[in-house]
Structures are given as C-alpha cells and as structure tokens.
Design a binder for these strands. Structure first.
Lengths: 342, 342
DNA sequence: CTGAAAGCGCTTACAG
DNA sequence: CTGAAAGCGCTTACAG
C-alpha cells in the first residue's frame, strides 16, 4: 500500500545521469552543463520528484530548524515576537519550531531533551532561563554542549549568550517619572511574579524614579501579579484595602493595567479622574482600550527580527564573536489612562 | 575545530556491543538483557551521547514534524489555537513548525514548497485554502501527493479533508437574534474581507436572523473590514455617514467590534446606550473591555486540540477513515455592549 | 538475546 | 563537466 518515495535516483535514471549530477543540477546549477541541467529539470517534472530535505540535512549535518522557547504563545506579546522571528527565519532558510513551556518545568525538561537530540541548529530563549533536562546529570556534559542560543525579551543573569532586550529599568523609570511629573506622589506598582527578572528590572526602575523625586521607596508599594488580566484585577482589590489609596498605579504590563482599570471601574473608581494607571508593552489593544492606555512601547517584532538575525549569524560563522547585548529603544506613549494630579 | 558528533557507534564501542544493540536498548528495551541494557546506559552517560532524531526519522521514513499554516500568528485568535495544537503535539511526539502566511500568496508558495519537500508528516490548515506552489505545474502531481491535512477554523469549500469548526452561520444567527430579541430592527453587519468563507458564513447567519424576523435583508446593511481593529474604526465612520444610523451593529469578530466601539466613542456615541454592538470570538480581552463585549465564544484551544488529534490519528492509521466534519459548540456570551432598544 | 549487513535519501572529495 | 564510491547516524530483517 505504502508507495515508495520518489528519490533522486529515480530522477537520475530517467535523465540518464548519475544521482551526483542530479544533486549538483539542483543545488549547484552552475557546475553542470546547460544541456544536462535541462534534462534533469525535465526528469524532475516528469517524476514529480520532491527533495527530501531531512536526508539532505542529515548529510550536511544540520537540521534547518531553530526552536523558539516561549512561556506562552497564546499571549500576544510573545506571538508578535514570534512573527518577527518567523519572518527572518523563512528568509534565511530556517524553520521555527514552537516550544511552548507554559512556565511548566516539566515541559521545559521535554524541550531540553529536544535540544539534546540535535533537533535544532539553534535556540531562541524567550522564557528567561536555560532549559535543563530532568535529573542532575544535566550539568556535566549538558552545559558544555548546548547549541547556539540567543536570549530575548528577558535577560538571563549570569549567562553570556547574545541578548536582545529593551532597557527595562530605564523604561520603568520613564513610566513612573511621567506620573511623578504630573504631580503624583502616592504611587504604587503592580509587578509580575516574584523571582522574575522582568519583575525585578521594572521594579528597580520604579524605585529609581521615586528615589530621584525624593519619594520614600516603601516595600508596601509593591504588589505582585503574574502578567495576566486577572492578576491585575486581584491586585487592585488589594490596593483599595490599603490604608491610603494611591492616586496612581504603574503596572508592569498592559494586561495587568487593563485588569486594574477594569476592577477599578467595577469598584466605582474612574480612571484617570480618580486614579491614574500606566502600563507596559503597548500591546495592540492598548490604543483602543477605554481609556486608551498610557504605556511603554516595546518594538516587539524588531526584537524577534534582530534575535533571529543574530542566531543566523551565529550559525553561519561559528567562530565569529557576536555583540553580547543589544538594547533596543522603548518609548513612553502618552494616552489617556493617566492624568495630572490635582 | 568542528567536533565530531558522538554517535551510536561510540556508545556501542564503549559498551562493548554492536550499534544494533544500542539502538534496541534505547528504543526496545524489553528486547535486550538487563545486563546489556545497563552497560549501554552507562556508556550513554559516559559519552554524553544524544540521539540524532533526524537520522532516526530518516530511517523510519517520517519527520516527526507537522506544520501549522496560520494567516497571522501575532493574532491572539490563532495563537491560542496554536497553543492547543502544540499541547497535543508534544504529548504525541510531534513538533510543530510555524507557517505564517500573512495572507501573502508568495509566502504560501514558500510553504507549499516545504510541503513538497517532505519537511512535515502532516499539515494543519488554518488559513482557509490549500497552499499551492508557484507556477501552474501545481495541479498535476501536486494535488495527488499532498500529505495528510486537517482543516480548522475556516472550512475549505469543495475539499474533503477532516475539518474542525464551529457552525458560523448558526452562531451569527444567534448573535443577531439576540439583538433582534432586544427590540433592534435597524441592524447592520461589519464583516471580514470579501471572498472569505468566514465572512460569508457569518453574513449568512446575519441575514438568516433578519429573515426569520421579517426584517429586509438589504445589501447596504453590510460593511466590509479585514478583522482588524482599524478596519472596525473605518467601518464605523462609513456607518455614521449612512442615511439612517443603525441602533445595533453585529461585527464578525471582536477586534472589529472594539474598533467600532472605540470609533463610536470618539464620534460622541455611547455604547450601548445609543448603539448596541456585538462581536464574535470572545478573545481574552473582551471581558475586560469597556463596555464588556457581548460576543460569541469559540472554544479555540479545543479546536486546536481536536484538530491535532485528528491529524495524529490520520498519521497513525493511514487507512482508517476519519469523520470529515467536526462541529464544536459555540455560545452566545451576553455582557454589556448591547442592550434593549427603547 | 545479539551481531553483520543493508539501506533510508542525500552530498562531495576524488579521479577522470 | 561527470561518475563511482563512501558516508551522514540511524534501524531492522535475517541469521544465529
């Protein structure tokens, strides 16, 4: 039942040449004579031959694949980065495998084992840490034999892989500074999960801005979420039970800002009249939310593009050194969710 | 410089057995003796051997890869479906390649050529049509040698691939019916791009509901967008220049509904007080938008899960027949963007 | 339970 | 410009 694959040998036979010649005609056309090339072309058409890239890649000791390790592809923030990655991948002859970790360690183990199995030529790390296979045997051989990796979005402290990020501390400083400039003094921060680099960087920026303004940097000004809308809602509920309700809230991403605003509205507070809110990321919906979100814009697609380009460079010239850190510009986008304090 | 790969032969040598035995120890452990198994295990650990899956797959005449052809991965609607696909793929030992067509025919040609090159064992089609390679030579051999495919989200008229969708006509009927029940008579529809199956199905549902209510089905009640927020905004601007402004608008997706509402607000109309709006899809933000969107819920993750499960079945039992059409439930979610007409 | 050998579909150094 | 042959890393029918 199973039909035999049509291979390069079938084409060779029909064209009356060797398989070596067919291979050359296909991939190094300038090395074969016009006439032979034509016969091969015809034979390919007649047989309906389609190259087996896997076999080719095995021979060439490559896979043509890269894997993108993402905490959550259903999150638009990451999927837009993926889109950038994918665009340069196709252009450069690579395909990208989805590695959705869901922040689940066991899923990371799985992907780590893929990495080991030479499934991919390189890895794009968007999840903030190096995946490690199950069990302690990890460190010995494993760490020394990692394929080329580049890190994006979330830096990995202590690693020296090429990294593409924005300056999260500075951006958070700008966002908070904007609130301060508008006269707010009682400002609170809703961050991501604890022990997360992004959370820490943005919190540092928040404190840095307070410090410059001479506002005390109390730890009770920090609330923790998990970057989801719901966690923003939950955070707001904690915030209104606080002793003196803040006049402004800086959220570590737009989803949480939306959660905060939506919970505020439900609780009868109007944004920005009574409480100002600023977000982070500038996801697509921010502009059309009500009120339109004041937020930090991240060049998401570009981050993906630059990262994939670095990876391609790494793969093409294994020796060559690559800039370790690339910092892309972020920008404060002033819209309507924050206003002057009066 | 380039270090030689550690292969199964290295392990065999160290363990003092043949490579065949190593292979068996790894993949058919019950066929080899306890003692041998242990020696192999030790040799693997000592050498740091990692299997080359590509070589294995070549030998097994499979790739372990499926490609998901998506119109736009940066769209949360699709990325959530991808997430479902990916979850069963990992479980079943497949990896999923991203094929982002961006609705660009030239990109579809590229992916069609991948399909030809035996890069994937199967294809998931979310983009509403079969990708065809550049040039007319397509039809002859091409169509008869397609790998197993399953279609999801958007049915492909005239094809008989297994298909997983919701009943878009019925869902649009429900959505429109909800507006009618609340007393609206002057209702207008913002659809997707012309010549799109989704657009057509949802429009049919819209008209079907009007018909049941005895409301005339004028073509000038139809406006066209492209499923983006911006196109919703644009559509609204056309709508208010219409002779008698409608009291309700049914949009073919949530993004356009958000665009419509946001443009309405800018133009000084309040939603739902003056104009009711209902969307479609129930994207994550719908619930937290202002006003919270009344919309049709689609089981996105489940669509992806079921589709990938069908594909796995197709790949495992090439002979076995598969249900051609699976219709998953959709549901009207009543929130606050539409209200009784008075 | 295990090994020698053939073969999956391709590419390339070597020789002509 | 072209062919014969070796080999990429694996698996499995065959024989023992």
């Amino acid at each position: 039942m199973k039909k035999r694959n049509i291979t390069i040998d079938d084409v060779a036979r029909l064209a009356g040449v060797s398989n070596a010649t067919v291979s050359r005609a296909l991939h190094k056309p300038n090395v074969v004579s016009e006439k032979t090339r034509e016969r091969v072309r015809a034979a390919v058409a007649e047989t309906g031959y389609t190259e087996n890239v896997m076999a080719r890649n095995l021979r060439l000791d490559r896979t043509g694949l890269v894997v993108a390790l993402v905490p959550d592809i259903s999150n638009p923030f990451f999927s837009e980065i993926l889109s950038g990655i994918e665009s340069v991948a196709t252009r450069e002859g690579y395909n990208v495998l989805i590695g959705n970790t869901n922040n689940d360690p066991s899923r990371e183990h799985i992907y780590a084992s893929y990495i080991k199995s030479n499934l991919a030529d390189g890895i794009l790390l968007l999840n903030g840490h190096i995946p490690v296979p199950e069990g302690a045997e990890a460190n010995a051989n494993y760490m020394n034999n990692l394929p080329p990796m580049v890190v994006l979005c979330e830096r990995i402290p202590g690693s020296n892989f090429p990294t593409i990020i924005i300056d999260n501390v500075d951006a958070a400083d700008k966002a908070t500074g904007h609130l301060i400039e508008m006269g707010h003094k009682n400002i609170v921060h809703v961050g991501g999960p604890k022990n997360n680099v992004l959370t820490e960087d943005r919190r540092s920026g928040f404190f840095q801005a307070l410090e410059k303004a001479g506002i005390p940097q109390d730890q009770d000004k920090i609330f923790f979420g998990d970057f989801s809308i719901n966690s923003g809602k939950k955070a707001f509920k904690e915030i209104i039970h606080t002793e003196n309700i803040p006049t402004a809230i800086f959220c570590a991403n737009d989803e949480m800002a939306i959660g905060v605003i939506s919970a505020a509205r439900e609780a009868g507070f109007s944004v920005p009249e009574e409480i100002s809110v600023v977000g982070f990321d500038d996801i697509e919906l921010s502009e059309s939310y009500y009120p339109p979100l004041t937020t930090i814009h991240q060049p998401r697609r570009e981050i993906g593009i630059v990262a994939m380009e670095k990876l391609v460079a790494l793969l093409s010239n294994p020796g060559e050194p690559i800039d370790e850190l690339t910092i892309l510009d972020s920008e404060l986008i002033v819209r309507k969710s924050a206003k002057v304090f009066d």
